[in-house]
Design a protein around this nucleic acid. Structure first.
Lengths: 343, 343
DNA sequence: TGCTGCTCTGTGAGCGTTCACAGTAGAGAA
DNA sequence: TTCTCTACTGTGAACGCTCACAGAGCAGCA
């Protein structure tokens, strides 16, 4: 009999109740809540006390109805499910964005648009104004969804450099080219000369830039690019495995390989292991991202750290600024070489 | 000059515009939209045409203001960040729930409550009525958040059996005990007799049930339980590695091990490899979950498949029913043995 | 003819906010 | 005193929708 009842939820207190309790008008309560206006200290104190006493929480729907804002943002992932399942980077990004938004009391709506149908449905949802802005994560280039949302005037921040540089859509990215340079310089410093590369997709700026960094450093070191040492993947584990296999077949004397993502590097490790190559004794392996995959790999991967926490924080900052009326912005963040046992 | 302008968003059409266009009243449009009332075919057709023509989309805030529902649900994860980052099961669950909800046009709000502060903030947010219900994922037992939300009368469905069976909170779970039985029977059928187990946390029903299934089958087979062959972990990869190490030390003659999650099994594989044991020749390894981790493991893991798609679908179904006023419900779903190369 | 019941439709009220505006009180200057 | 300015407060209106109610039209039946 001491069990709590299921408790049909009672009517929550409104701004009216607070006003009555504090002996002021609705307007004053609203001003205390939203700030920026003249409010006497005494009134503010009374209102705050009344809020505490009544347990008042603003009704977001009523507010949104009049302001026209939803005070929520969407986190849109236009990747196939399988990529979401296997790549821990998404989780890191998702988690950091959620937290950065929580600091502003803004909820995050998860939108997974792996299929064409879902993309259509979600685009419709967003352009209907159900969210104030969108954080877009996509390894595809020139994402049609991005284009469409941008055209519809929806505030948008992309993670990673978008393809069409003409279109003025905001983005936040790590310095891919510089990170790649650091890694290849590191491999050179270990005395490696036959350095292969499994790049990302070459129709994306990220994929292109990392490859460019690789070629640049080799050229500077007076080593000519051997095309048999370069293949490309799609950031999936399987494509890393396949890529490393192809490299081994084309250039059996390869003594190091720079793989454009940790997940692909995991795959590459598997291929190397199967081929009987020891890592790092026979072949040094460098990854990119510094995700959980890098630490879990055997051996743990030397990699290029992408500052996902800062990337997320910047994405949220830029998005909120844009919702507030500011112009789109591009942010590039520095990377860092993390040495572990694979090199 | 052909570039699109950023397009300040214009005022969207309202139900009033649709009514005028269709030559009917607001009420009729609303009835067509929400169904369940008498509407003449002619009026319905006119309204639908008007909706198509104007591109009308309901204003959810206005609707919510009057109905008192938010038509959104929260996906609450009360796990530390690191667990979210390393365990792909969460992604599968998250993805499937998002899609199941999308079919009802209900957005999913992601709530990550890894720390105490976050839990407080989020509990407050939920009890304020900002979501209609909560899908709770937590490997902890008797989660205080669950308790609190349930007390507050918030519709709630937990993934996995909750600890306190007294509290009537809905849940959806796989049949842990039966799955464990299948796996141990399979190991026995391979001729293994010194079968170890790395269980889940023993303060959770899931952990307890899988261990119970293990013991039950061994007892039935006339094999007495050797406590040196049983250790427990916390579902993390690291704890699987540590667990297998301890088993090897305590019972070097172990010829099989049933690990209560695929992620822990991955860790166990690492430990076995380091100890020079061949899998499956020297030691058979069985996992649980059938997550991406099982496929990616070397060798790929024999495991017990949890039907995550059905689990998610049921969670959503039960939650919506409960929001609709029905009583809490418990659903247990069957598992399936998936044979791969580790046994 | 009048009554009942069924199908369908329009209307006003109200959900809980914010916003613009009007208004008050008191201080200081003319 | 009177006027102006600053600091602050209250009040209706509106946001876009749903809901309850009233009522219209029509068929069937006595």
């Amino acid at each position: 009999m001491t069990m709590s009842n299921t408790g049909g939820r009672r009517r929550p207190p409104t701004i009216h109740d607070v006003a009555r309790e504090a002996g002021v008008s609705r307007g004053t309560v609203s001003r205390v809540l939203n700030g920026g206006h003249y409010v006497s200290p005494a009134a503010a104190e009374a209102v705050n006390a009344a809020i505490r006493k009544t347990g008042y929480v603003v009704n977001r729907h009523a507010r949104s109805l009049i302001t026209g804002r939803s005070d929520s943002v969407g986190f849109l992932l236009t990747e196939p499910q399988e990529r979401f399942f296997e790549d821990p980077n998404f989780n890191v990004l998702l988690s950091a964005c959620t937290q950065a938004l929580a600091a502003h009391d803004i909820p995050l709506l998860l939108m997974l648009a792996g299929t064409k149908d879902e993309r259509r449905r979600i685009t419709r949802y967003i352009t209907a104004g159900h969210v104030d802005g969108v954080l877009l994560v996509s390894s595809h280039s020139g994402d049609p969804v991005a284009e469409e949302l941008h055209k519809a005037g929806v505030p948008l921040v992309q993670c990673g450099k978008p393809m069409g540089l003409g279109s003025k859509v905001s983005y936040v990215a790590a310095d891919d080219r510089d990170g790649a340079r650091d890694m290849v310089r590191h491999l050179l410093s270990l005395g490696r000369r036959r350095i292969g590369m499994v790049s990302g997709p070459l129709d994306t700026p990220g994929g292109v830039d990392r490859l460019a960094g690789y070629k640049e450093v080799l050229a500077d070191a007076g080593i000519e690019i051997d095309e048999r040492l370069v293949v490309s993947g799609d950031y999936s584990r399987a494509s890393g495995e396949a890529g490393a296999e192809r490299l081994l077949a084309q250039a059996p004397d390869m003594d190091a390989v720079f793989v454009a993502s940790d997940l692909m590097a995991q795959g590459a490790l598997t291929a190397l292991y199967r081929a009987g190559r020891r890592v790092p004794e026979d072949v040094s392996v460098g990854g990119f991202d510094d995700s959980v995959a890098a630490i879990e790999a055997t051996p743990p991967l030397t990699t290029i750290r992408q500052p996902y926490d800062r990337i997320s924080a910047e994405m949220v900052r830029v998005l909120l600024a844009q919702i507030g009326g500011e112009d789109p912005a591009a942010v590039i963040l520095p990377t860092e070489l993390v040495k572990r046992d694979s090199t």
